[in-house]
């Protein structure tokens, strides 16, 4: 299981695709829990979506009632291998916090514990950054605009 690194501006939303590679093994169910700093990120209710690599008859249940914790449960009648997009979560970057948080994989259970998981890399850094008013390039750094005596402009 892997999570991306993402950057988001305060007040904006960020979709976090979560990728699973079952490496040919078939699964019938998965339970996953993620944690993050709720003062920085909050899951948008109803935003969790099944990934494209998950069998069509699998059901997704999301529990985010505990701030800072997102629990997902997926199960289906059809046992299937998973390779690629498992689920997508969309978070809202809480305005004004101006800090970063890790979206960490807290636990994972496959086939109700019958299958082993190697999920050591389950960690995503989502950084909430402030855009600078003079950032012309879009790299979050300030640029300096110069104007010469002849009206020529340089960045």
């Amino acid at each position: 299981m892997s999570l991306p690194i993402a950057t988001v501006e305060p007040g904006a939303t960020v979709a976090v695709p979560i990728v699973v590679e079952s490496k040919g093994k078939t699964l019938r169910s998965a339970e996953v829990a993620f944690t993050c700093e709720p003062a920085v990120l909050s899951l948008i209710e109803g935003s969790a979506a099944r990934g494209s690599s998950v069998a069509g008859d699998w059901l997704l249940v999301v529990n985010s009632s505990t701030p800072g914790t997102v629990r997902l449960a997926m199960a289906g009648v059809t046992a299937a291998s998973v390779s690629g997009g498992f689920v997508s979560l969309t978070f809202h970057a809480v305005r004004g916090r101006g800090s970063s948080t890790a979206l960490s994989l807290a636990s994972i259970g496959l086939d109700e514990g019958a299958a082993a998981s190697a999920a050591a890399n389950g960690h995503a850094a989502l950084e909430v950054r402030f855009r600078r008013a003079s950032d012309f390039v879009g790299d979050f750094a300030s640029d300096t605009l110069w104007r010469g005596s002849g009206g020529d402009l340089w960045l």
Partner: peptide
């Protein structure tokens, strides 16, 4: 990092 010419607006 870079110096890029933007243009000219001669009227002050």
């Amino acid at each position: 990092a870079t110096d890029a010419y933007v243009g000219v607006v001669g009227d002050p």
